[in-house]
C-alpha cells in the first residue's frame, strides 16, 4: 500500500551518547507527499540531527519514525515495492536520500578520480537520462578530476551523485551553501518539478533564504530540539506591500491565528542572479528545467 504521508514522526527524542541533553525532543510530524518543507533554526537547534534520523543514519530507540510508511533505519525499507510501482520500478527508487555538508569535507574525495567514473560507480549508465539532466542543470563537466575542484564544484558533484537515483524523500542539510546563485536556482527549480511530477517530498534545512519566497509548502521552526512553529505556507504566510514599513522585511505575527505577514525585503539576490546570467550567457528560460 502507499503510505498516506511521506514522513510521519511520533514522540521522537534522540540523544547522542556523549551528550547530557537530547538533540531532538518530542518531535511529532506529518509531512504529506509532493511537498517541499523548509526547516529553520539556529545553529545547534537540532535540524541536522532530525534530518539524519529521518534518513535512517542513526538508530533511534525513543519514538517512531516512518518514511514512506517504513522504518528508515532498516535497509529493507530503502527498496520497498509500493502499490503504485512495479517490482522493476521499485529497484529504481530509494526511499530516502540524505545530502549533507560533510561529504565535501572528507579527505577521501580529494583523490585523483574522474567525475564520470564516480557517477558510473553509482549507476549513471542505468539512469542515463536523469544523470545527463542533472549534469546539465548543475553545469558539471564529467571530465573534471576530483582533486582539482573548487568547493562549489565538489558540491555539484555530490548533488549529482546523490540525486541520481530517484528518491521518495530527499533530506537536504545545508547542502547548497557552496553553490552559486544560478546553480542553486536551477537545483531548487528541479526539485520543485520533481515534487510536482512524481510521488516524492523534499525537506530542506538551510540558513540561506534568498530565492525561496515561492518555493516551500511548509516551514518548520526548530529551537532546542523542538519544533516550535509550523507554518502552512499558502495559508499562513503572506507577502505584503507594506508601504510604511519601518525596517527592511518587517514581520507581523497575527496572534489570533498562525498567520505571518512579511513586508518586502531588499536583497542583492536579483542582481547576483542577473550578473551570472549575463556572465554565462544564460537565457532567462534556462533557469527552469
Amino acid at each position: 500500500m502507499v503510505s498516506q504521508f511521506a514522513i510521519e514522526v511520533r514522540n521522537l527524542t534522540y540523544k547522542f551518547k556523549e551528550s547530557s541533553d537530547p538533540s531532538v525532543v518530542d518531535i511529532n510530524l506529518q509531512i504529506p507527499w509532493n511537498t517541499r518543507s523548509l526547516v529553520v533554526g539556529a545553529n545547534g537547534a537540532g535540524k541536522s540531527t532530525l534530518l539524519k534520523l529521518l534518513s535512517g543514519k542513526h538508530l533511534c530507540l525513543d519514538g517512531k519514525i516512518l518514511v514512506n510508511g517504513l522504518d528508515p533505519f532498516s535497509p529493507l525499507s530503502m527498496n520497498q515495492v509500493d502499490d503504485d510501482e512495479s517490482v522493476e520500478d521499485s529497484t529504481n527508487y530509494q526511499t530516502t536520500t540524505y545530502l549533507g555538508t560533510e561529504w565535501c569535507h572528507m579527505s577521501i574525495i580529494n583523490r585523483d578520480i574522474g567525475v564520470l567514473e564516480l557517477l558510473k560507480s553509482i549507476g549513471f549508465d542505468h539512469f542515463r537520462e536523469r544523470g545527463e539532466r542533472l549534469v546539465r542543470i548543475l553545469d558539471i563537466d564529467v571530465r573534471w578530476r576530483m582533486h582539482r575542484l573548487s568547493d562549489g564544484q565538489k558540491r555539484r558533484v555530490q548533488l549529482a551523485m546523490g540525486l541520481l537515483k530517484p528518491w521518495r524523500v530527499l533530506l537536504l542539510d545545508e547542502v547548497t551553501v557552496d553553490l552559486d546563485v544560478i546553480a542553486r536556482a536551477r537545483l531548487l527549480e528541479f526539485l520543485k518539478w520533481e515534487t510536482e511530477t512524481r510521488r516524492c517530498s523534499v525537506v530542506y534545512a538551510t540558513h540561506i533564504f534568498d530565492g525561496l519566497a515561492k518555493w516551500p509548502n511548509q516551514v518548520y521552526h526548530m529551537k532546542s530540539g523542538k519544533i516550535v512553529d509550523n507554518l502552512d505556507y499558502q495559508k499562513d504566510v503572506e507577502f505584503s506591500e507594506v508601504v510604511n514599513a519601518k525596517v527592511n522585511g518587517q514581520v507581523a505575527f497575527e496572534n489570533d491565528n498562525n498567520k505571518v505577514v512579511i513586508s518586502k525585503v531588499n536583497s542583492l539576490h536579483p542582481l547576483a542572479l542577473e550578473w551570472l546570467k549575463r556572465d554565462n550567457q544564460i537565457p532567462d528560460k534556462e533557469i527552469g528545467i
Partner: peptide, 20 residues
Amino acid sequence: APAQNYKIADISLAAFGRKE
C-alpha cells in the same frame, strides 16, 4: 548487481574503495 540490502555510511565512496 548492486546489493539492495546493506547499510553503510555512504555508497558514493565505492569508487574510492575499489581503487584501494
